[in-house]
Simulated scan of single mutants.
Amino acid sequence: MSSWEERGNYLIEVSQRCLKGRKTFDLCRSHLVQASQISKGTIYNHFTSEADLIVAVASADYRHWVNQAEQDTLQYSDPYLRFIFHHCQRLYRILSEQSFVIARVIPNESILIQASDYYRERFDRVLNQYAQWNTQTLTEIGEVGGFNRGELLCDYLRGAMINSDDAQKHPNDAEMYYQYSYAMTQLMGHSHKRMPSIKVFLQWLADKQA
């Protein structure tokens, strides 16, 4: 990795820290000067527009979830449990780390059009990887006709993450994850599936504290 890439990754990490707890992406490139102790010229060289900064942060978030998905594929042989616990982990991270919910602003065509080719193409690649993982996992669970269930799930997950963040839900609420899983299961069209119980979620949360 070149020093330019390392510096860019550092600026993205600083951006993510600055965005913790926020409900809007109100971070500008100029804000990074003091936060990162890097010159304005260098920052503007990395991100030639505010759209570049947004898309760069979004790419990093999606890269994290692609990596998490790869770990979950190894951990859960059952695709249903893999999908459920993966998306519960996404929600847990948002609430426990007060991470900015990037779904509030991305995907957004108007922002992507404004971004430079470098950041837009990088985002498109990682978004496609993540979408493919979700699609493949749902296919393994078993497709149910009648609706575009992938789209329904995507819309639900986005809304649930934003609403849970807005409501400042507690990250260790096992019943919340149980309800979250129930909604996902219904939208998949697999109401016959045996869902993880509240007891299972309590243990899942306890394991995170170990």
Rank of each mutant, 00 (worst) to 15 (best):
Y178T: 13
L112Y: 05
I12K: 00
N163I: 15
M1K: 01
S191L: 13
P196K: 03
S164I: 10
S96F: 03
L91T: 04
N163A: 13
I162C: 05
D117T: 09
K193I: 05
S164F: 07
Y80P: 02
D61L: 01
N45F: 14
G189Q: 04
R82W: 06
Q136C: 14
G146R: 05
L19E: 00
Y182E: 13
M161V: 11
R17C: 00
Q89D: 11
E13A: 11
A167L: 10
M184P: 07
C154P: 04
Y10W: 02
S197D: 05
G41D: 06
Y92V: 01
A206H: 10
P79V: 05
K23F: 12
A35M: 07
M1F: 04
S39K: 00
K20P: 01
Q132D: 15
A60V: 00
Y118D: 03
R90P: 03
F85G: 02
K199R: 14
D61T: 09
Y44H: 10
G159K: 04
S15P: 04
D124S: 13
A167D: 09
N163W: 12
S110A: 14
P79I: 01
Y178P: 08
G146I: 02
A206G: 07
A115G: 04
R90H: 12
L202E: 15
A56V: 00
